[in-house]
């Protein structure tokens, strides 16, 4: 994400408001500890920007467990109520495997993946 409107330092979360929704890039380890904080921060950003679609780029995530499922589905439910949804990009095979176990891709759109 080259042209960030706002960038939060020392954080797992980079975001940018775009015409078609809110684009966020997550980095680091997405576990229960991180997801608790990220969920409320994403909700605040969604409310603040009034976005209907959340585009989540996970290409910077080095580790994810099932906490990632709750994070994505929680945001999906929130945006679904507004007639929007979630798009996931930058997932690797391991992350896809975890999302597939829970049927996440039946609810959210899958964008570009990454290798490995």
């Amino acid at each position: 994400m080259e042209s960030l409107d706002r960038e939060v330092e020392d954080s797992m979360l980079f975001y940018e408001k775009r015409a078609n929704g809110l684009a966020v890039r997550l980095t680091g380890e997405l576990d229960h500890s991180a997801a608790r904080d990220l969920g409320s921060r994403l909700d605040a950003l969604i409310d603040e920007t009034g976005a209907k679609r959340l585009m989540m780029d996970l290409s910077g995530v080095d580790f994810m467990d099932s906490s990632g499922i709750g994070l994505v589905i929680g945001r999906y439910k929130r945006l679904k109520r507004r007639g929007g949804g979630v798009t996931l990009t930058g997932t690797n095979a391991r992350v896809d495997r975890i999302f597939d176990m829970a049927g996440v891709y039946q609810l959210v759109d899958r964008g570009e993946r990454r290798r490995g």
Binding site: A35, R36, G39, D65, S66, S67, I69, G70, L71, I73, G74, I98, M101, A102
Partner: peptide, 8 residues
């Protein structure tokens, strides 16, 4: 209430 997926 805690967004746990139940997939652990």
């Amino acid at each position: 209430g805690d967004e746990r997926s139940g997939m652990g």
